[in-house]
Design a protein around this nucleic acid. Structure first.
Lengths: 340, 340
DNA sequence: ACTTAGTTGTACAACGTTGCACGTACAACA
DNA sequence: TGTTGTACGTGCAACGTTGTACAACTAAGT
């Protein structure tokens, strides 16, 4: 259990000695505190640069101050859409003094991750696609500034939310299908009850189907996030007498799977079946996929979430709920069938 | 700049008071230190459970002890292959008391990320696909236990490495192409000089081409990681009089792009051109791609890296260099062209 | 009964910051 | 000349741990 010896790092005291001032003065400079002359600030900054000092986040955390680090929790690393959110957060953070660490819910539970992140005394948390209950999140928000991405809870006041207008996503998909001549439009959704984001997409789908007088064609199939189940569901939708002529999928990966199943079943896309995905991830554009998809601008979501979180950390108490508007990006997979 | 008031957390002192012992005794229990009776341990554990105590990582970090948190740095979140590595790390960590935070090099530089992570007093670092120099990494390893994934430096002794046998990857791809009747085999590679992993793949490619007496057909095109450049390069390889009949791509995403370009150019895969990717990511299996790919078992890489890192933290000084063996997963994109 | 050794628990000084409570000097005003 | 501010710098007590030094107790050996 022996720890290898490591060289000790430069502290605020070393800087103070080098600059010939008290260590408190250095702390003041670092904190931009009141009562520092330009001369002193300059001296200290020179020494900091010279010695290559960097503040210890641990020490900051322990003494109750800001750590200037925020945590971002993702449900999964496989969906490239999350990379867009991250890009938004990154670029928003660039303009601030805050750093970021990520946590990805893989084996460990979201709760365990939150636990470990709060024990680091982070200044705030952004959770993407949380599966926690509204109560648990409110309790968490009492301990740390919190912003949620992808969790529709307009009624909560303890934390902020940033969301895509997911109902609009559902409506966009259906309207586009209908305009291009599709009628028997099914939706491939997720089985987990918590996913309020996806619930909204279902609601939008249902609403638009009814508006198009296609209420009798509504069919939502919910599967777990698991290759075999998704394939099975797609297969069922694309075979038999009740065969659908279009599928709206809750995320691109599922839509690509639907394209794959169609291919294996010998069905031509879009002539025999249309497909629309969600998130407009980078794989959609490939010629072999050419997948129509709903773009919800992950970058915007990340950007706004970061803005809100920093505001919260700086003291805002009133909850804000931000909505971004989705946009349909049309490609071959949903082109009018008769044209092909 | 006012901070919202947060409820203060349960400390070691609270636990001590509740259990009726000194706070040092609690610390001893937490550290599994010598000289603790079963009775005391039991009392303390009961109080810990009752109060829901969790140790403050900041305090641990500052007092020079272990934080039981390791950092994992990824170059990018878009490549789903990294999710496999992460899965390996996660599952290896499950059996230990260590936690993990991730950092993803997006806008910020790798150096800045390392900086911020060392300031957190993490116990160790795993860096995936580092772009730093061998010297910089050795210097870093002097300050913190370090394991690198995807950085061939068998000569270094300051840290451990875990790698795929990338030269073998190159050989596997070429041999498979040759067996299936392809001759004019090009390689699509990355332009950055640092990428020693990819360099090895190039070396394996060159070696196998020569071994197959195809030395005159060797052609390596290096592009930046940028859609337009990749497309352009693929287009050039697939047109004109010197048109290639097979392309080995350094990563799946590029291979999918090659498939896309082939499709747009009206070339049939695999009849007119064969494609092999690398990493065997989940998109390869889709029927519309059916991409042959080299599987380098990200999970194994992550697992071994974690094992090595924990060993290092526990005191091992001698460097270890672990190699995993790649495996070719054949699909339609590289099937014998004449058969189609 | 008296030392000796082992076992179990306690006291306390770090660790690197923050942020408040003080000094001190110097200028402005009466 | 004394008084009152104001700008700037210093001193110090936290913060929640770790790990070492040490005290107190127990049990055995003489």
């Amino acid at each position: 259990m022996a720890k290898a010896p490591r060289e000790k790092s430069v502290t605020i005291h070393d800087v103070a000695k080098d600059a010939g001032v008290s260590f408190s003065a250095v702390s003041k400079v670092l904190r931009n505190a009141y009562g520092v002359s330009d001369a002193l600030r300059e001296k200290v900054n020179v020494s900091i640069a010279k010695l290559g000092y960097t503040p210890s986040m641990s020490a900051r955390g322990i003494s109750g101050g800001r750590t200037f680090v925020i945590g971002v929790i993702f449900p999964d690393m496989r969906n490239p859409f999350f990379a867009d959110i991250l890009a938004g957060i990154s670029s928003a953070l660039e303009r601030t003094t805050y750093q970021m660490v990520q946590g990805i819910v893989q084996h460990s539970s979201e709760a365990a991750l939150v636990q470990s992140m709060t024990s680091m005394q982070l200044d705030g948390l952004i959770i993407v696609g949380s599966v926690s209950t509204s109560q648990a999140l409110s309790a968490l928000a009492a301990r740390i500034p919190l912003v949620l991405i992808g969790h529709h809870l307009p009624e909560v006041s303890a934390f902020d939310t940033v969301n895509n207008d997911d109902a609009e996503s559902g409506r966009l998909a259906v309207r586009h299908f209908v305009e291009n001549g599709y009628r028997k439009i099914a939706m491939l959704s997720l089985d987990s009850t918590n996913g309020t984001v996806i619930q909204r997409r279902e609601e939008g789908y249902i609403e638009a189907m009814k508006a198009a007088d296609l209420g009798k064609n509504i069919e939502i199939v919910r599967t777990p996030q698991n290759l075999r189940e998704i394939q099975g569901a797609a297969q069922r939708l694309l075979s038999g007498s009740g065969r659908k002529d279009a599928i709206f999928c809750w995320t691109d990966y599922v839509a690509l799977e639907a394209l794959s199943v169609a291919g294996i079943s010998g069905l031509a896309v879009p002539r025999e079946v249309g497909v629309i995905g969600h998130d407009n991830t980078m794989y959609c554009a490939f010629d072999q996929n050419s997948l129509t998809s709903i773009d919800q601008s992950g970058e915007q979501l990340g950007l706004q979430a970061t803005r809100l979180l920093v505001e919260r950390i700086e003291g805002r108490q009133k909850a804000e709920h931000f909505l971004v508007h989705p946009r349909l990006v049309a490609r071959r997979s949903s082109a009018p069938p008769q044209k092909m």
